[in-house]
């Protein structure tokens, strides 16, 4: 087994790690917070508060 074989196994392991980290966090957030809050973002917020389209 040379360095490339070891790197292959390391890549599999890290891929699984990053995938699991994201999924665990997604489940944790979805079960902790109310969905209405999570999807409460609105497009016009920035325009309304910061930059107005006036000449």
């Amino acid at each position: 087994m040379d360095i490339w074989n070891i790197l292959e196994y390391a890549a599999w392991a890290l891929s699984a790690l990053f995938g699991v980290l994201m999924l665990i966090d997604l489940v944790r957030i979805d079960s902790t917070y109310d969905n209405e809050l999570l999807i409460s973002s609105r497009e016009g917020e920035i325009e309304a508060t910061a930059e107005r389209h006036e000449i």
Partner: peptide, 25 residues
């Protein structure tokens, strides 16, 4: 180039996507 032929590319392809998706997350 280092004499290792037939590298399995799949884990590196998956790692690139997974790592960057995690970074974006």
């Amino acid at each position: 180039m280092q004499g290792h032929s037939g590298l399995n590319q799949q884990p590196f392809i998956i790692l690139a996507i997974m790592f960057l998706a995690w970074l974006n997350y």
